[in-house]
Nucleic acid binder design. Structure first.
Lengths: 342, 342
DNA sequence: GGCAATTCTTCACACGTTTGCAATCAAACA
DNA sequence: TGTTTGATTGCAAACGTGTGAAGAATTGCC
């Protein structure tokens, strides 16, 4: 609890001015080799570490980046943040973590906090970023990188996976298995990624010259509970779907569980797909067919872009591609299964 | 990217000294009401926010806390951090997030970073904290609060759940169902909580005058993969257990999945319990009997203790109790099921 | 031994705040 | 008119650091 040792303390002990200490510790060649050695020795003994907050003042950069998430307990977000943190630290930056929980008031608080703390850049791993929110972030006049939400702006760049293309692959996979009535359970939180995935789904349906049935598209909270509610509605249809494309793995988790209680077999009666490839996707029953999002890599790339921007370099947005991971939750629909069984 | 507006800029615009601006903005009663109004007006127009880094220097506190986790993508850790962040922010503190990934070198880096940034306190939500590590943290001379790892020390307090008691309840639940061969799959990472849970398990076994069979206790990584490997060893025993107490939900997840592939029914052939009550525990097949750890509350309490310590108040460690949540993964062993079925 | 050149160190200021103290000013009082 | 009082404001120092420029000490040269 007592005052940390300062650069002046070191100077006093060694018998030199604090300027000399500063230079010695930053390996400046102008200081006498012997003096430098003594200074470094004392600094080590005293456990001295230069205060970044003193340094920030004169250097005019805080060596921190802000990271606003909607919910850090979301496993997807956790993976992304892990990637961000790793890269940021490798470059000497520390990460301020703040959760908004999608609360506009909280979002403003976060912007204010980041402003007051003079963060050098901001990363937002959230596919749902309000326009107002973004405007406030931009007002800070520092680089902003979004994840899974392309939003052109002067200081704003983004890292995405190609949601449209991935959704196309996933939908095609289902059609290829023989499904003709494929439902889509989206996120009702208005995520950019939801719009893109829905587009991908619709474009493949259209290209396959299948009728588009709007009853097959429902929206729910991207949670297990949401998935549960959504699949109930779909199962109540006169003509049920034989396959469901879920916005993400959590939604699919709810679908699997609801199907189980309803006595519907997956993938026998119903094929189910997720999106993200959270670690649980391998451990559901049956294991989930999904799109792998390279979460850590996405976070890492976002951090790299941000670091570049902070150095004043030009940067460009990045789009990675998601990988289709086929597991046991998808199979041909029953009509075909019977045929093949012969 | 340009220089943020400073308190002097505001002073220049209004035509007063920066001292007056400072006082006006901190609601000091000595400044003329009219002047104060003009100052606040201009500050608002200019989007001025006082730099916390300038302020930190003179106030001698950074208004930040450091939070070191092993892995932020771990859902348990995510929940705890969410609670920490919420409480910290309510009190004007920002949270530095750093992951150690249980790497001693990284742990040192984190301590160094927190030191340089002059964080006012540290929270470590990890039940595995090396002694050396703790020594380095203590050297910072700031309050440290651990979660799920009681470790007495001058500046060190902790928030735990009563792992021993919870493990007793869980084990008793299994015995009560009629199980007599109960296995324990622990964490081999040497967590304090593992030791406590094992003690709880053993004490109930002992008090029930059941023989302690050391073959029934195995240790693995606390991950689905670890659980998978462990249950395989247990199933290879001549006399198999009829129930398994898993260190945590993730381990149990692997056990469930391995049992499924081995054709072993849960809970028919094998009862399985977890620990933590992650959100997935409700969505496994069958839903998992487990101990609920109030993750957010634990994080929040830890933050409150830390805030108290930083204000110089006395504090004491807190032990919360975990709640037994009985779901469908536990049932009487087959011998009894037959009896009751008549 | 005197001077210039070289090497090393200190001085002084800046960064953005807060705050004790002195200074200014107007009004009130004698 | 001179003095006191009270209200308001500015000055200056401090926090911990980096850095250009000036100063001091040493060395080399003639």
């Amino acid at each position: 609890m007592k005052r940390p040792v300062s650069i002046k303390d070191i100077g006093r002990i060694v018998g030199v001015s604090h300027s000399t200490v500063s230079r010695a510790l930053s390996q400046s060649p102008v200081v006498n080799a012997d003096t430098a050695r003594r200074i470094r020795q004392v600094a080590r003994e005293q456990g001295y570490r230069a205060s970044l907050i003193g340094r920030s003042l004169v250097m005019r950069r805080s060596m921190t980046v802000g990271c606003v998430v909607t919910d850090i307990a979301d496993p997807f977000v956790g993976g992304v943040v892990d990637g961000i943190e790793k890269v940021a630290n490798q470059h000497g930056y520390a990460v301020f973590l703040a959760s908004s929980h999608a609360d506009p008031k909280r979002e403003l608080d976060v912007v204010r906090s980041f402003h007051e703390r003079r963060v050098d850049g901001v990363i937002v791993p959230s596919s749902r970023v309000g326009f107002q929110y973004l405007r406030h972030l931009s007002a800070l006049q520092i680089p902003v990188v979004l994840i899974n939400n392309q939003h052109p702006g002067e200081y704003t760049y983004s890292v995405n996976i190609d949601n449209l293309e991935a959704a196309r692959r996933l939908t095609f996979h289902l059609l290829e298995l023989g499904h003709r009535r494929v439902a889509y359970i989206g996120s009702r939180q208005g995520n950019q990624s939801d719009a893109d995935r829905l587009s991908g789904y619709r474009s493949v349906i259209r290209e396959a010259r299948l009728p588009f049935d709007k009853d097959l598209v429902v929206h729910a909270d991207p949670t297990p509970e949401g998935g549960r509610a959504a699949i109930k509605r779909l199962l109540a249809l006169r003509r049920r779907p034989t396959a469901v494309f879920c916005y993400d793995d959590l939604t699919a988790l709810g679908v699997l569980s609801a199907a189980r209680s309803a006595g519907i077999e997956v993938p026998g009666d119903l094929s189910v797909t997720g999106f993200d490839d959270l670690y649980i996707a391998s451990y559901t029953d049956p294991p989930l067919t999904t799109i792998r999002q390279p979460m850590r890599e996405m976070g890492g790339r976002a951090a790299e872009i941000l670091l570049g921007l902070m150095r004043g370099e030009a940067a460009k947005s990045v789009t990675l591609s998601g990988e289709l991971v086929v597991r046991a939750s998808t199979a041909p629909p029953q009509v075909l299964q019977a045929v093949r069984a012969r």
